[in-house]
Every structure is written in structure tokens, then in C-alpha cells.
Design a protein around this nucleic acid. Structure first.
Length: 378
DNA sequence: CACGATGATTCGCT
DNA sequence: AGCGAATCATCGTG
């Protein structure tokens, strides 16, 4: 019985009321109804009074919060660039801020006053509860002290929370005023996404009706005039962008064409040089001038002193990797300069090392898979 | 701070 | 009134 009473006492002083403990006590105590009622009543009272503010287990007065709450004494307008020229623009905003701070302050003081009252009530109620305990257990000054401490601790925390809430409200207000003070704000991602989606889905005819504009405005939380501005800007800018893309594509194609022309010219030059050198170095047997130097069959017919190594060193075109593969072809015509021409694919034969690009020219280019270009205007 | 993106404003046209 | 176009002014970023 003593043990049970101890538990009950502890439960009351710490507000940690375990209903099982109470139930046991109720069963074994002649004053059970009274005890049961006062415990629950006290607990419910505390709960209902406290739930007006968020309670934290350990909350200490914060210097940060108090610094923010200094706005109550000396409110400073959050926007710096206040000049005389734009005073009429800032004044309503400044007033809004000062009024807001005042409102927050009044709210806080009101709630704080309510908390004080509630604390007084709780204290007197706690004392009343303790007095009623005297009917079934000894109650001394320590019990009163405990319950006073317990109650005032709860209310102190509530006050700290209240100040924290007020500080948060001030920060939110300052941020809002700062945002409103700006000349222009970019729309948030949701808004631009919504507008972009509509624009893209209707890119064939991106002109929303009045009703659609109203819907978009509501959906994006912007004014209808802003929807109009956005679509006006979007139409002209996507058009400009499309034109820019077209322009760049033209430039690109022109550059490709120029490069191709340059390559062709280079090849023609090479062919000319090669033929000229071939004509001047082919002194081994003037009688067979009209036969290709490159024909291996001809090499066998040449005088023995002319070794392939010599030809290699002196003229260089034997180093051409394709020499023997194309060499069996005969020249098809002569021109006035004694140049010999060979069927298609033979022109690359020359003194200049065959480049990769030139080799590629001999083969039909592998067609690259093409991806349809995105056309924003449809 | 330079520069591109972007929302708003203005003007002329139909 | 609604639009395209040019322009302004600010924002956001490297």
C-alpha cells in the first residue's frame, strides 16, 4: 500500500500519470472516486491548457529568438534600397511590415497573458488537489513545492515556444515583404512547367482562349495579365529561337559545302602534281611511256638494274598501300600534258600519302542514323 | 561584374 | 481588344 501511494505521489508530481497505477489505487482506496477524478481532471486540464502551444521536452531561451524579437522594440524595414524617389512605392509595404510586427507582438502578448492566467489557475488547482490528498495521505510543503515547480516548468516552456513562434512569424513576414518589394520575380518551377506544357501541347496554335487563360492563371496562381505576358513573350521568343536554329543550320551546311569544295580542289592539285612527277621520273624506258608505271607486269619487263627498292626510294609512290591493288588498271586516256588518267578510284594514287578521308572517298559513306530534329513551332 | 534569361511595358497594327 | 515586336529592368548565375 505504501509503495502504491509512493507511485501515485510520483505520478502526480511529475504529471506522469499511468492509468493502470490509478486503477489499482482506485481499487484499494476508499476515496478512490475522488482520487481518480482529481488525477484525471488535473491531467486533462494541463493538457488542454498546454495544447495551445507546441511543447518541446527541452527548450531553452534562445539568444537568436530574442534577437529577432528585438523587432518588437525597434522594427527595421527589411528592404534596404529605400530612396526618396520611390517612397510612395515603399510606404504601403513599410506600413504593412510595421503593422505585421505589431500584430505578431500583440498576439504574443495576448497568449502570454493567457498563459500567465492559466498558470495561476493550474497552481491553485494543484494546491487544491494536494489538499484533497490530505484526506488519504500526508502532504507536506515539499509536495506543494514539487507541484508548483512542475507546473511552472511546463508554462515556462510554453512561453519559450510562444516566443519562438513569434520570431518565426517575424522572419516569414520579413521574407514576404522582401519578396513583394522586388520589381519582378521569376515564376516558380511549377508555374513555368504548367505554362510550358500547355504551350508545347498547343504549339500548333499557342493561343489560349479567355477561359483557358483564366484556368492557367488559377492553376499557376498568377494574374491573367501575367498569363498574357508570358504567352506573348513565349510565342515571340520561341519563334526567334527557331529562326536562330535555322540560321545556324544554314551556316553549318555552308561550312560543310565549303570544306567539301576545298577537299576537292586539294585532290585535283594532288592529281596534277602526281601526274607531273610521274611524267618527269618515268625515264626508265621512254618507249613504254604510255603504260602505267604502277603495273607490276611492267616491272618484270623492266631492265634488271631497276630494282623495286630503287624505285621505292626515288619516287615514293610504291609506298602507297593501294599500289598493287589498283596498279593493274590501264590508263584510259592521255591529255596534252602527257598526264595519264585512270578509272575511278585511281586518282588517289600519287606522291602524297593517302589520307583517311581520301580512303573513305573510295567507299560509299556509311549512312548515319538520323534523329528527327525537335521543332518547337511544329 | 558580365551576360543570358525572363517578366513587364510600350507602341503600332489590324 | 489582342497581337507581334522592340525594349526595359530585373533576376540568376558563372
Amino acid at each position: 500500500m505504501d509503495e502504491l501511494m509512493k507511485q501515485l505521489h510520483k505520478a502526480v508530481s511529475t504529471d506522469n500519470v499511468d492509468r493502470n497505477t490509478i486503477a489499482k489505487g482506485v481499487e484499494m482506496n476508499p476515496y478512490r472516486r475522488t482520487l481518480h477524478e482529481v488525477l484525471l481532471e488535473r491531467k486533462d486540464l494541463l493538457r488542454s491548457r498546454m495544447n495551445m502551444v507546441v511543447m518541446f521536452d527541452t527548450e531553452e531561451p534562445s539568444t537568436e529568438i530574442e534577437e529577432i524579437l528585438a523587432q518588437f522594440q525597434n522594427p527595421t524595414f527589411p528592404i534596404e534600397e529605400v530612396n526618396t524617389e520611390k517612397d510612395e512605392e515603399w510606404q504601403p509595404l513599410e506600413k504593412k511590415y510595421l503593422d505585421g510586427v505589431n500584430q505578431i507582438k500583440e498576439d504574443m502578448l495576448l497568449k502570454q497573458g493567457q498563459l500567465e492566467k492559466d498558470m495561476e489557475q493550474s497552481l491553485t488547482h494543484g494546491e487544491k488537489v494536494l489538499r484533497s490528498h490530505r484526506d488519504f495521505r500526508p502532504v507536506d510543503e515539499r509536495d506543494y513545492c514539487n507541484i508548483r515547480q512542475s507546473i511552472s516548468r511546463h508554462f515556462d516552456q510554453a512561453k519559450v515556444s510562444l516566443r519562438g513562434e513569434a520570431a518565426t512569424k517575424i522572419l516569414v513576414l520579413r521574407r514576404d515583404i522582401e519578396q513583394q518589394g522586388r520589381k519582378r520575380r521569376n515564376f516558380d518551377k511549377n508555374t513555368t512547367d504548367t505554362l510550358q506544357n500547355w504551350f508545347h501541347e498547343h504549339r500548333q496554335n499557342p493561343y489560349p482562349t479567355d477561359q483557358e487563360k483564366a484556368e492557367l492563371a488559377k492553376q499557376c496562381n498568377i494574374k491573367i495579365s501575367q498569363v498574357n505576358n508570358w504567352f506573348g513573350n513565349q510565342r515571340i521568343r520561341s519563334k526567334q529561337q527557331a529562326l536562330r536554329c535555322e540560321e545556324e543550320e544554314k551556316k553549318r551546311l555552308a561550312a560543310v559545302a565549303a570544306e567539301e569544295a576545298r577537299q576537292k580542289e586539294l585532290e585535283e592539285q594532288n592529281a596534277a602534281t602526281e601526274a607531273a612527277i610521274a611524267a618527269s621520273t618515268n625515264l626508265v624506258n621512254p618507249g613504254i611511256l604510255n603504260l602505267p608505271l604502277v603495273n607490276p607486269a611492267m616491272q618484270a619487263m623492266m631492265i634488271p638494274s631497276v630494282q623495286p627498292t630503287v624505285i621505292n626510294n626515288s619516287s615514293g609512290f610504291l609506298q602507297q598501300p593501294n599500289y598493287f591493288t589498283v596498279g593493274e588498271q590501264m590508263p584510259i586516256t592521255d591529255n596534252a600534258n602527257g598526264q595519264q588518267f585512270y578509272p575511278t578510284g585511281f586518282e588517289t594514287f600519287g606522291l602524297v600519302q593517302q589520307t583517311v578521308e581520301q580512303q573513305a572517298l573510295l567507299q560509299p559513306p556509311v549512312s548515319q542514323p538520323t534523329f528527327p530534329a525537335m521543332n518547337y513551332l511544329g
